[in-house]
Amino acid sequence: MKKWWWKILCIVLLTYTFIGGLLFPVPRIMILNETIRNLYFHVCMWFAMMILFTISVINAVKYLNKHDLKYDIKSRQYAVVGIVFGLLGYATGVIWMSFTWADPNNPAVASFSAIAKEPKLIGAAIALLIYFAYLVLRDSISDIDKKARISAVYNIFAFAFLFPSIWILPRLLPSLHPGGEGNPALNYNDIDARMRLVFYPAVIGWTLLGSWIVSLKVRMNILKEKEHLSDIYLQEKNAPIHEA
């Protein structure tokens, strides 16, 4: 019970998100109409992505402190799943955009270059490019310890840059997103009370789903890299084999 309560919570919250998100009443706003329900999916993807990337950086810092490859595996897997959530965020955003921002007389593709210069899109693109580069950098180094150390350094350096750029970009470019000044979804008063009921549980639910996927991937990779992990983790699990 101790270890898997959050998995049940994740299932419950996501079921609630789908049922509540599609059926509960929402405010009627011009142009947005029913597409406003996408908030529970689109915005949550970005929240989950940023949270997963942040955990990835925390694990990178832990690796540099303790030199334990377990943290390196975690750092990498959190980054990978964060990228998946980022791509899903783009996908849900494209659906939303094609009903609201795109010129109705043109196909959505034709309005792409006008819409793509959007601070939030650029911020997300920077985040994804950073973590793609992180993966390329990792794969270009063959020595395992060196790979872990150098990619952890890049992870921290890039993340320390990412946050300021997300704050700076909206000041430089005009935006179509609501709440251009500041952080729209974090501001308590920006979201209608009825929507908050579903939105906050949805954020937690999607983030838990991400962590669940990561935990499976981490366990798989720890098994794969068994012989390189020579610390407490192994002593717990495999002590008899090593003694023999």
């Binding site: 390329v136 270009s140 350096f157």
Partner: peptide, 25 residues
């Protein structure tokens, strides 16, 4: 970082471009 990875200028560009965008803007 690139020197430690024994890589050429190519990887520097990959690593650096996303970071430099806000500054360049």
């Amino acid at each position: 970082i690139a020197a430690k990875a024994q890589q050429s200028a190519a990887i520097m560009a990959i690593l650096g471009f996303p970071l430099i965008i806000p500054q360049l803007l």
